[in-house]
Computed example of a mutant assay.
Amino acid sequence: MGRYNIFSYQRSGERYGYVPVGEWAESLSLNSDLIRWPKEVAPTSQCSDPCERNEMKKMQAGEYCCWICTACEPHEYLADEFTCSPCAAGQWPTDDLTSCYDLPEDYIMWEDVWAIGPITIACVGFVCTGLVVWVFVRHNNTPLVKASGRELCYILLSGVFMSYAMTFLFLAKPSPAICALRRLGLGTSFAVCYSALLTKTNRIARIFNGVKDGAGAVRPRFISPSSQVIQLVMVSVWLLLEVPGTRRFTLPERRQTVILKCNVRDSSMLLSLGYDVLLVILCTV
């Protein structure tokens, strides 16, 4: 059972000395008026300073009044004074770090530099394709146009026109309808071009082979018009298996940027072009 006298070391006149200001005898008895603090302000009695707005308290083992202030990551908010919690993908902490909010979606705008270039090329392509169509229509019944495979040329030009039109679909803001048209139009436009080109190439090859062999050339079955709907069937099945829609995409190293994209996988998009690759190979053979 302790008993203590409490002194304050202070200046009195020209001398310094200890002045009794209280005692402890099972309870504290303290005369605060006798205590003199430097600059008349009592010093702060604490083990650790309060943490900043973006810092959490990391308590020391066995301590209740002492802690280490640890800064939260830029993408984290303060769930409580002892915990920094990360915001979900596509979210960012509010200014007061009490919660998270959804980041605005980023996508290619029509006025962006990356959009102006493809749009310009597509417009030039429309003009060139339109001029060729105009020439064919004007000279539709001439021997030269007939010999070139008039109907197949129109189909080929329509596929070229569709390919240029796909530029605007890929620059438009992603939505379920836009994503469906992208998947339907990309492979189909190429298939229209390559199927017409394959038919023209095969027709010429059969003509020369027939002349060389002295026998009539037989058209293969896969050149028939009904065979050219394979791409549409493949894309339709793909749309049923993987319903078109959008998703918010965030890179781990750029969590503050959210990109609005179609929910299709890049691998699926490449697989959808497999039939077009087959047509190209057949044209080459």
Rank of each mutant, 00 (worst) to 15 (best):
G2N: 07
I6D: 01
S8M: 05
Y9V: 09
Q10S: 02
S12F: 06
G17H: 12
V19R: 08
G22M: 10
A25Q: 15
A25C: 14
E26W: 09
S29W: 06
L34A: 13
W37R: 08
E40Y: 11
V41E: 04
P43K: 02
S45T: 14
P50W: 08
P50S: 11
M56P: 07
K57G: 03
K57L: 09
G62C: 07
Y64W: 14
C66P: 06
C69D: 04
A71Y: 12
C72G: 02
A79S: 13
P86S: 06
C87D: 03
D95R: 08
D96R: 04
L97S: 01
D102H: 11
L103T: 01
D106F: 00
D106I: 06
I116R: 10
I119C: 11
I119T: 15
T120W: 13
F126L: 14
V127D: 00
T129A: 10
F136H: 00
V137M: 08
R138L: 00
N140F: 11
P143M: 09
A147E: 14
I155A: 14
I155P: 01
M162N: 06
S175A: 11
S175H: 09
A180N: 04
F190M: 15
V192R: 03
V192C: 06
R206A: 15
R206E: 10
R206T: 02
G210R: 08
K212V: 03
D213L: 14
G214D: 05
G214M: 02
F222A: 05
F222K: 00
S224K: 04
P225S: 14
Q228T: 13
V229K: 01
V229F: 15
V229S: 08
M234T: 00
V235D: 04
V237D: 01
L239R: 06
L241Q: 13
L251I: 04
P252G: 01
R255F: 09
Q256C: 12
I259R: 08
V264F: 14
R265N: 09
S267W: 00
S267V: 10
S268I: 02
M269D: 09
G274V: 07
L279N: 04
V285Y: 12
